[in-house]
């Protein structure tokens, strides 16, 4: 794996390999000494042009547990805030001997540009680009889902997600998490339905490999998991995507009543950070079927796997 830019870059075999490696990584994280020597001497740069404490910390923990040297660049307090371009930052990192760059950027396609514009030869891991994709989030969601469904039903881990029914609810238009999840879950054979008001579904969604619905109540009884997306008020500019927060919550919020529409085994997922009381109620977020905290823990294992395949994988090849 040269770069990880989009969930669409992963074949079924790639995705399953990554999830299997993540399982191995997770097993090491249950040990008293969590650190592995795998990436000793390699340098991973976390390049965060956009604030994201949880993703940055997750990647930092993952790289450190693989013994990589980690340098974190945040937009604030670095040359980036003085107007340095993505290109010049990339050249600087290359000159400093970075082996991989984990990039979070507000522009869709920024990771793709960093990987393919000819600025540097460093491996790029997309940690969220604008409203495009966030592939490691989709991988950790798939990892969490696969684990939970396998615990319940058993069977071949490679096939657990085949036919799994997943509802993704909320602000699909602005969600990089939704895009990556639709692509990855499709690759793994799951059946995805997007639920959102029409204003928060992109024009063109009809060609995506999933179904769409405007009726959350009708969808919930038939799913194995519901992924609730954060309402990204900061991306909504002039607003007007829905009449009011109250109406959004009434029609698309996951509250206690809707929780009880779910089948008994169904999971409640959320990529975080949550707007409690808007897209998800405390009752849903804190219910036993919620995997929200588990998703965070699994994020480290999945990012360890991604870094491992990006950096150690090339030695093996």
């Amino acid at each position: 794996m040269r770069h990880l830019l989009s969930a669409a870059d992963l074949s079924r075999e790639d995705a399953l390999e990554l999830l299997d490696v993540a399982e191995e990584m997770a097993a090491t994280q249950a040990r008293e000494i969590k650190k592995l020597p795998t990436l000793r001497g390699r340098t991973v740069v976390n390049l965060f042009f956009e604030d994201s404490t949880r993703t940055r910390i997750s990647f930092e923990a993952a790289a450190k547990r693989l013994s990589a040297d980690v340098i974190t660049f945040s937009a604030k307090g670095s040359s980036v805030s003085k107007g340095e371009s993505l290109k010049d930052t990339a050249l600087t990192l290359q000159a400093m001997g970075a082996d991989a760059v984990v990039l979070r950027h507000s522009a869709s396609g920024a990771a793709h540009r960093l990987a393919h514009a000819g600025w540097s030869g460093v491996g790029v891991l997309n940690a969220g680009d604008g409203t495009h994709e966030h592939p490691t989030q989709a991988l950790l969601d798939a990892f969490t889902l696969r684990r939970r469904l396998a615990e319940r039903a058993g069977g071949d881990p490679a096939r657990v997600l085949e036919g799994a029914r997943v509802a993704v609810v909320g602000d699909v238009l602005h969600s990089r998490v939704a895009r990556s999840n639709v692509l990855l879950l499709e690759t793994l054979g799951a059946d995805v339905v997007l639920v959102a008001p029409p204003t928060l579904l992109p024009v063109g969604v009809g060609t995506w490999p999933c179904r769409t619905s405007w009726d959350l109540d009708a969808v919930l009884p038939d799913v194995d998991a519901v992924m609730v997306l954060r309402v990204q008020r900061e991306r909504m500019g002039g607003g007007g995507f829905f009449p009011s927060a109250q109406e959004y919550t009434r029609r698309f919020g996951l509250d206690g009543r809707r929780l009880r529409l779910l089948p008994d085994h169904a999971l409640v997922m959320h990529p975080g950070p949550m707007n409690r009381g808007l897209e998800i109620s405390a009752e849903a977020a804190d219910s036993p079927r919620s995997t929200i905290v588990e998703q965070v823990a699994n994020g480290v294992a999945v990012r360890m796997a991604a870094l491992y395949l990006l950096l150690a994988g090339e030695d093996a090849a």
């Binding site: 869709s108 396609g109 680009d129 604008g130 409203t131 495009h132 994709e133 990089r176 895009r179 992109p202 024009v203 063109g204 969604v205 060609t207 995506w208 500019g237 002039g238």
Partner: peptide, 17 residues
């Protein structure tokens, strides 16, 4: 406002306004 490319199938996938 903030438009980046033709609105359609490709923009939906690329996450460009």
């Amino acid at each position: 406002e903030g438009a980046q490319m033709h609105e359609g199938v490709v923009s939906s996938v690329l996450g460009l306004r």
